[in-house]
């Protein structure tokens, strides 16, 4: 086979742009997912049953549908749904990139919810009791006492989930968004250099994810000692 790796050098600026979008989407989805997921976790643990049920329903729905389907759903069906609600003449144009941000925050929140729920439950009830006994209210107890400890305990798992998220982001290339994989696909098709491009992309993903995983493992060890 006749391989030409020089193509990569020439396409590098374009690929870097794609990688930047991938990072951006990962960061936004992880941050938004943790925030929304934590609120979902508090809702699931609420003693107010309707709230707990609604949150559980949402989480189970998201976790039972393939990510790809959720991506399509938000991209193709939500605009139509919004149109029927608002009564506009044409479906509102959300755009693939913006749609991807919303999709990933909503989808990842379901997974981060379950992680944070386990984290909150890992904090002994006595801790919350001590907070209440000092006169703190529910939000103060959560924000000052329970969540910092839960977040700290769960940090390695949250980061591991974020690495998975980093890989899952590549699915947006199917919406013709120029993420890292999307950029590579476009270059590969334009220059008919599929093998080189896909090989390069795989290597970059491997190096990034493997070193990040190693860093998480290191962090996990550090946290274990301090505790």
């Amino acid at each position: 086979m006749d391989l030409d790796f020089e193509i990569i050098g020439r396409a590098l600026p374009y690929l870097a742009g794609g990688l930047q979008y991938t990072f951006q989407l990962t960061l936004v989805a992880a941050t938004g997912g943790v925030i929304f997921g934590t609120l979902l976790a508090l809702a699931r643990l609420s003693s107010f049953k309707p709230l707990a049920l609604a949150a559980a329903g949402y989480v189970n729905l998201m976790r039972s549908i393939p990510l790809l389907l959720v991506i399509f759903w938000f991209y193709f069906l939500v605009p139509v749904l919004l149109q029927s609600i608002t009564g506009a003449e044409r479906p509102p144009q959300i755009g693939a990139e913006r749609s991807a941000y919303i999709t990933f925050v909503m989808f990842e929140a379901a997974f981060f919810c379950e992680i944070m729920r386990a984290g909150i439950q890992s904090i002994a009830r006595g801790q919350a009791g001590a907070g209440y006994a000092l006169g703190l209210n529910y939000w103060q107890v959560m924000w000052q006492i329970v969540l910092p400890q839960a977040f700290r305990n769960m940090l390695p798992i949250l980061l591991t989930q974020s690495i998975i998220l980093f890989q899952d982001v590549s699915l947006v290339s199917l919406l013709n968004v120029t993420d890292f994989v999307g950029a590579a696909v476009k270059v590969a098709q334009r220059d008919s250099r599929v093998v080189e491009m896909y090989l390069f992309v795989a290597v970059v993903y491997f190096v990034l994810c493997f070193s990040l995983s190693a860093a998480v493992k290191q962090l996990q060890r550090k946290i274990a000692i301090v505790r």
Binding site: G126, G129, A133, G135, Q149
Partner: peptide, 28 residues
């Protein structure tokens, strides 16, 4: 919360907040 703020309570398992320093435990 207002009532509890004026009733001190000490627990069997201390229940200090492990992520805060001793002084922060006292000032929070």
């Amino acid at each position: 919360p207002k009532l509890r703020a004026h009733i001190g309570m000490v627990f069997q398992n201390f229940e200090l907040f492990p992520h805060l320093s001793v002084m922060e435990n006292l000032t929070l």
